[in-house]
Design a protein around this nucleic acid. Structure first.
Lengths: 112, 112
DNA sequence: GTGAGCTAGTTGGTTATACAAACTAGTTGT
DNA sequence: ACAACTAGTTTGTATAACCAACTAGCTCAC
């Protein structure tokens, strides 16, 4: 997967997953992998979580794990919900644009 | 529009427009604006064209303009066509992933 | 004919982000 | 003791879009 295409998208997706239900980083990574971001690693996700917490879009809290090290659970804030709405709007704008271009290019370039 | 979301997308879109028919940079910018990338500027597009030409994905040729400065027309190469196919595949993979996440997040987080 | 504004393209520096790689540290099982 | 898994951190690197300023050709109003 072209890593450039992920820019910005990942942040929105992380907010969306956290909005669904509070979750800790390690489990979040696994969930995003299940959603198709298969080569995602901790060194990518954890810094985003730190930034989002610093921005006040998510709020973290350490909890004991029944097995293994402590986990930092994050939940969405009102600010974060706003960012999600904005992300969805921009994402849909973008897909609209790209879809149109792909469609037009297919109608011409290929079939002549 | 969040500029991060454009990363990688713009390059693919430029190739697609050039594949449709040979075009010069200035007209390309106007066309991309019509497709919804309204705030696109020359300082973004021209360097991409230079890189694509250096990579052998497009080929440029200066032509006289009936009015104004000379224009550099670009046409797609076979290499470029391959990149387009790859871009479309990755783009569709990405939209599939994101759409799924948005759908799942909407089914839960919002409506409870 | 001079300057404004459009057309056409170039360039240097800034910023944001994904990732590789290496690390700390807790727990479990052998 | 040691490996393997869980959980999170940190440093550095590569890439891409953009701002801002620039060169240069052409047209038109004044």
């Amino acid at each position: 997967m072209n890593t450039q295409l992920l820019k910005g998208v990942l942040e929105g997706c992380i907010l969306l997953v956290i909005q669904q239900e509070p979750i800790y980083g390690y489990a979040l990574i696994q969930k995003l992998r299940q959603f198709g971001f298969e080569s995602l690693v901790g060194g990518t996700v954890y810094p985003i979580l730190q930034k989002l917490e610093k921005n006040g879009q998510i709020q973290g809290e350490m909890r004991k794990s029944p097995e293994g090290p402590d986990r930092k659970y994050f939940e969405i804030t009102e600010v974060g919900k706003g960012t999600i709405q904005q992300f969805i709007a921009e994402w849909q704008q973008l897909t609209t644009n790209v879809t149109k271009i792909i469609k037009v290019a297919n109608d011409h370039g290929d079939t002549q």
